[in-house]
Simulated assay, not measured.
Amino acid sequence: MLSPESTTTVRATLPAVGGALGEITALFYSRMFAENPELERDLFNRGNQAVGEQRKALAGAIAAYATMLVEHPEVRPGAMLARIAHKHASLGITADQYQVVHKYLFAAIVEVLGEAVTPEVAAAWDEVYWLMANELIALEAKLYQEAAVADGQVWREVLVTGRRNESQDAVSLTLRPADGSPAPSFVPGQYVSVAVRLADGARQIRQYSLSAGPGRGEWRITVKRVHGSSTPDGEVSNWLHDNVDAGDLLEVSLPFGDLTLAEGEEPLLLASAGIGCTPMVGMLDHLAAGGSTRPVTVVHGDRSPAHHAHADELQALVSALPEAVLHRWYEEPGEHAGAAATGRVDLAQIEIPEGVRAYLCGPLPFMRAARAELLRRGVPSTAIHYEVFGPDLWLGGK
């Protein structure tokens, strides 16, 4: 909890600091990468840096956390912090790196705000930073403990045991530890990070959902090719498409992620768009393997049947579940859409069972619209879960 003195100071300065966070975070990343170029090259997603998404996400997280400290001190932003902690764990972030961030972030605050940063203001915002950082450090330490690894030691060499085309622009890769042991178990809905060494020497990392259920002794990820990007965004996915086949080795993290399938008997809504189908396919695979009789409403939207990754598998998994129903939308249905509707997903047309637990994955506009409709229909926010790959620019679910 923020001290009373700092609460008063943060409340008074939040408009000024919040209004300048965009400039502060831009300067922060610029200075940190200038003096520590290996961080941008080998740890941070330089595609997100190029388009400014990472600094927007950082500014949003700091502002949201500070606002909650002063306006709702009895509430912890659990979902936001959990999402960040899982992402950090999948990258192997350690506690000492928070000191590096603190150094450059506070130097940027002082430079941007100048004389407004009195000793009292600096102390108050320092308290905000370390409250947030220490919560994340504790969450990440718990994740490492649960994974039975030392802090940050999440990387493993895996063998690609198979490659399969899943749509015209998506391939799946099956993975097994290179030492021949079974792949560690995971909770349906989780992801792994994949690190690749690119032609310019950079080690870039991206996250990919595990698109099959646990219990197979191996993992599966599905990778969509990114077309027409003018930034480095998509460079890892495209590299995997162009360079990886069965028999190759990859550097992959242990599984993390908090969009995980809750056990129980309550009805489920699994709503996805585009490559956001991957965690949903993993969840359905797990449900079908266990003979689940839970009511499951599956909703998916895509550009066309040819772009729909795992389309046949999705239909087969839904058919294997006695209480499951599938609704599909295609913007360009063509001749092979079957019973799919034309256009974009519209949850207003779907029956939503009482007591449903909803999972969303896909582009932000899709998830915003889906969440808004579910809230309008009376689904509590605590029952709506979502996954964002890359910086979380939407703090809906906090």
Score class of each variant (00 low, 15 high):
2 L>S: 02
5 E>N: 15
7 T>E: 11
7 T>W: 09
12 A>C: 12
14 L>P: 08
14 L>I: 13
16 A>R: 13
16 A>C: 01
20 A>I: 14
24 I>Y: 01
29 Y>R: 15
32 M>S: 01
34 A>G: 09
42 D>N: 15
46 R>K: 10
50 A>E: 05
52 G>F: 01
54 Q>H: 05
55 R>C: 07
55 R>Y: 10
75 V>S: 09
75 V>P: 00
75 V>H: 09
80 M>H: 12
84 I>E: 02
87 K>W: 11
88 H>V: 15
88 H>D: 08
91 L>T: 12
92 G>S: 03
97 Q>H: 04
97 Q>K: 01
99 Q>D: 11
106 F>C: 11
107 A>S: 01
109 I>L: 14
109 I>K: 04
113 L>D: 02
119 P>S: 01
122 A>I: 00
123 A>G: 14
123 A>M: 04
125 W>T: 03
126 D>M: 01
129 Y>L: 04
134 N>A: 02
135 E>L: 00
143 L>C: 12
144 Y>Q: 03
145 Q>D: 14
153 Q>N: 15
155 W>Y: 02
156 R>A: 01
157 E>N: 11
164 R>S: 12
172 S>W: 06
180 G>E: 03
185 S>E: 15
186 F>N: 04
191 Y>H: 07
192 V>D: 01
196 V>L: 08
203 R>V: 15
205 I>L: 06
216 R>L: 15
217 G>A: 15
220 R>T: 10
221 I>T: 13
224 K>M: 10
230 S>Y: 00
238 N>R: 06
243 N>C: 08
244 V>D: 00
255 P>E: 04
256 F>G: 12
256 F>W: 05
266 E>F: 03
268 L>Y: 03
268 L>Q: 04
269 L>E: 00
271 A>W: 02
276 G>Q: 06
279 P>F: 03
279 P>I: 12
281 V>Y: 04
283 M>H: 06
285 D>A: 09
286 H>W: 13
288 A>G: 09
289 A>D: 05
290 G>W: 13
297 T>L: 10
304 S>N: 08
304 S>V: 07
308 H>D: 15
309 A>P: 04
311 A>L: 14
316 A>N: 08
317 L>T: 00
319 S>H: 06
323 E>H: 13
329 W>Q: 04
331 E>P: 02
336 H>Q: 07
343 G>V: 04
347 L>E: 06
351 E>R: 11
353 P>G: 04
358 A>S: 11
359 Y>K: 14
359 Y>S: 06
366 F>T: 06
367 M>D: 03
369 A>H: 11
371 R>C: 13
374 L>M: 09
374 L>Y: 11
379 V>M: 08
381 S>P: 03
387 E>C: 07
390 G>R: 03
392 D>E: 13
393 L>S: 08
394 W>Y: 09
394 W>L: 13
394 W>F: 09
398 K>V: 10
